[in-house]
Nucleic acid binder design. Structure first.
Lengths: 191, 191
DNA sequence: TAGTCCATGTAAGATGTTACATGATTCA
DNA sequence: TGAATCATGTAACATCTTACATGGACTA
């Protein structure tokens, strides 16, 4: 009954932003060009068609705002179906493939956690992320150890850069977990 | 006279690998699926058409290898035009946009440095990379400082993750430069 | 009044994903 | 002999890039 969710990362980003605040295509483009939100393109050729698709799937709806002498704007707002879709996206389990190919999509998922998911989902995400990172780091280190003797200096350095990037993510995940746990403690004390 | 180089990152990766060693499409797919080479997809639907395009642009050429009772393989090797294209790609200046949107493409460029470019190009790359990273980090930190009070915890953490990633790249670039400088010193001593 | 920003879009083309298709060869 | 692996490809589809197009409103 529930059909497959297949939306691009851009679509999910748009959906999240529209959930935060009903917006026009132009607003969203400005947002992408003026903030470091894992810097999507702000090109109209990407954004306007993506909005149409979301509307076609009934994840958002639009109305034209032209009141007063103002110029016309098509303002989008999220539907309940859209909220459901975004939540489902956020609470998907993290796979090895996510970690290897879509690390920044994962971070996009996490950025919206506080607003659209509950604390438990955020914690599950971080724990599962940490676990996948551990596993992948083991793989990478093993590969480096086995092959470093056959690699050029620049090749080895490039691989090390990848490993260091994942190590940084791992430390980040640990710290993020600690942050949430500290928060929970404070809240208990307040009650 | 020299037309615009517009090849995807996948195409450049294929070109570099073929330069290292004449290969069939199947070899290249296996390479992508068995090494952590910034993990491109190993899907035939991406690789075979990309090889055809490279051949159409005369950056590689192919011959069919079927000697003996063996199965047929189409083996690709790089042309001098291909070598030129790859070198030109590697020695392009690093832009802000590269740093913001294509950090892993940059790493791919660097990975092949020792094999296809000279030491000076590698050093220029690292210096320029370090400089762009410094500039972008300043931007990101300024943005965080100005906006952290308005951000949710998960939003702030996600942004911090991005900053930490760039800090790691920055430290990497410094260390890589030091590695090459140490190397140069040793070589001088040996002479 | 000329330039810049607001605001929305389309068209052509490149690239990549997913799924399907085919056949030879090797190995248990 | 059947399964796995070698080996190459195509077709349909989604998505994104680049470039173009349009017009209103604000401002120096």
């Amino acid at each position: 009954m529930v059909e497959a969710d297949s939306n691009s990362t851009l679509s999910y980003a748009l959906l999240g932003l529209i959930w935060q605040k009903a917006s026009s295509g132009y607003d969203l483009r400005k947002f992408f060009s003026s903030t470091p939100i894992r810097s999507f393109s702000d090109s109209p050729g990407a954004i306007y068609p993506a909005l149409r698709r979301l509307e076609g799937r009934k994840l958002i709806r639009s109305r034209i705002e032209g009141k007063g002498g103002k110029r016309q704007r098509r303002v989008f707002e999220i539907t309940s179906r859209g909220r459901l879709t975004l939540r489902r996206w956020q609470s998907q389990p993290i796979t090895r493939d996510d970690v290897v190919h879509n690390a920044d999509t994962l971070m996009m998922r996490f950025a919206f956690m506080d607003e659209f998911a509950d604390r438990a989902t955020a914690l599950r995400f971080l724990q599962s992320f940490r676990q996948q990172l551990t596993a992948y780091l083991t793989e990478l280190r093993r590969y480096l150890k086995a092959n470093r003797q056959f690699m050029s200096i620049s090749g080895r350095l490039a691989l090390e850069s990848g490993i260091q990037g994942y190590e940084t993510l791992f430390r980040w995940a640990k710290r993020a977990l600690a942050t949430y746990q500290r928060l929970a403690t404070h809240q208990r004390k307040e009650n």
